[in-house]
């Protein structure tokens, strides 16, 4: 049984940026940027993690913050670029 991309993204965000959210399931469409779960610094970390974890090259890809604002959009971005 493999984890879905959504689950991996959610797991990463919770463990690295917000362990206090472990008891709450972050909805796929919850805006992480607007609601302050992820700030600009965390966004950089997230991009690095996506590159390493999914082999997405940031050089070849244009990333806008809205691509990474929710767990759904992050997952979509990963699928589109792998």
């Amino acid at each position: 049984m493999t984890m879905t991309t959504q689950e991996r993204v959610r797991g990463h965000i919770v463990s690295v940026h917000a362990p206090e959210l472990a008891e709450e399931e972050i909805p796929g469409d919850y805006d992480l940027l607007i609601n302050g779960v992820i700030d600009s610094l965390a966004l950089l970390e997230l991009v690095e993690w996506i590159q390493k974890e999914f082999g997405v090259s940031a050089m070849d890809t244009e990333i806008s913050p809205t691509d990474l604002s929710t767990i759904d959009s992050i997952s979509k971005f990963i699928h589109k670029n792998t």
């Binding site: 917000a18 206090e20 959210l21 709450e24 972050i26 909805p27 919850y30 607007i34 609601n35 302050g36 779960v37 700030d39």
Partner: peptide, 23 residues
């Protein structure tokens, strides 16, 4: 919930005033 409180704060505060960590 943690997420509902974050949303509530985000709807009435500028982004700089949002807690990065909320317990």
């Amino acid at each position: 919930t943690n997420l509902s409180l974050r949303s509530a704060a985000a709807s009435s505060l500028p982004r700089e005033a949002l807690p990065g960590r909320l317990f």
